[in-house]
């Protein structure tokens, strides 16, 4: 009996060693891929960082207002962030490739799902980024137009516009990523609808005078003209 046990154990150990011997090259391959991937990702990070610096990406994201958000969140600058993102994405990609080489069946599915998810992730990032850009631009445009048109609460108007655009962009990004998209959509619809309803009521009830003055100014020039002389700036 003792010999049986030893024999089984020896066989089990031999199998283990054999399995290990089969597994080891794959593990080594995976490690090599991971190391090479790391090196490649690091190289790409430097290239991307350099390219973004040359393209003055920081400046663009500053105009987008993204830098402000990043600083508030104690995150590094957008160029650095993009470069690191590229690094991690690339290295993760290589790592997962290595995992696939290991041949662990269950993991392969997750690897392919990851690679399928990547484009959507990028799309989401772009949507948010350009959404922020547009929001800042329109905020500034609305603010300037309102100030020069002598409308009251110009900044409120501009901020409202920016908020709407940001919310829209974020919602679109979430939808793109497929993360709680239905919840987001419904929440967005409710919020947007409520906002519009609120504005309508506010404008309708409270903004009567404003509306009247605006329309008067627009369509009844002549009365006003008689009250003062018109001069050209040029």
């Amino acid at each position: 009996m003792w010999q049986l046990i030893v024999g089984e154990l020896t066989r089990a150990m031999q199998e283990l060693v054999q399995d290990f011997a089969h597994f080891l090259p794959r593990l080594l391959a995976m490690l090599v891929i991971a190391v090479l991937g790391w090196a490649f990702a690091y190289f790409l990070k430097i290239v991307v960082r350099g390219a973004l610096r040359l393209a003055k990406f920081d400046k663009l994201s500053e105009s987008a207002g993204a830098n402000q958000l990043l600083t508030k969140a104690a995150l590094p600058s957008s160029t650095e962030l993009m470069a690191r993102l590229v690094f991690w994405v690339v290295w993760m990609g290589f790592f997962l490739l290595g995992v696939e080489v290991l041949g662990v069946v269950g993991l392969q599915e997750y690897v392919s799902r990851f690679f399928l998810f990547l484009p959507r992730l990028l799309a989401g990032v772009f949507i948010v980024f350009f959404g922020l850009l547009a929001a800042t631009f329109f905020y500034r445009a609305a603010l300037l137009a309102a100030v020069n048109a002598n409308l009251p609460s110009a900044r409120v108007l501009a901020v409202s516009l920016r908020t709407i655009i940001v919310i829209l962009a974020v919602s679109m990004a979430f939808e793109e990523l497929g993360l709680a998209d239905r919840t987001i959509i419904v929440a967005f619809a409710i919020a947007f609808g409520a906002l519009m309803l609120g504005l309508a009521i506010a404008f309708g009830l409270g903004g009567q005078d404003l509306a009247r003055r605006f329309l008067e100014r627009r369509f009844l020039h002549d009365k006003q003209e008689q009250k003062q002389d018109e001069f050209s700036p040029l």
């Binding site: 603010l143 309102a146 100030v147 020069n148 002598n150 110009a154 900044r155 003062q228 002389d229």
Partner: peptide, 23 residues
Amino acid sequence: SVRVNRKQLHQMFTSGVAELEPV
């Protein structure tokens, strides 16, 4: 002599300075 709405100019200046501070 002419009639000019000076008041409005001053008001637009002050409100402009305040509202446009971020810009």
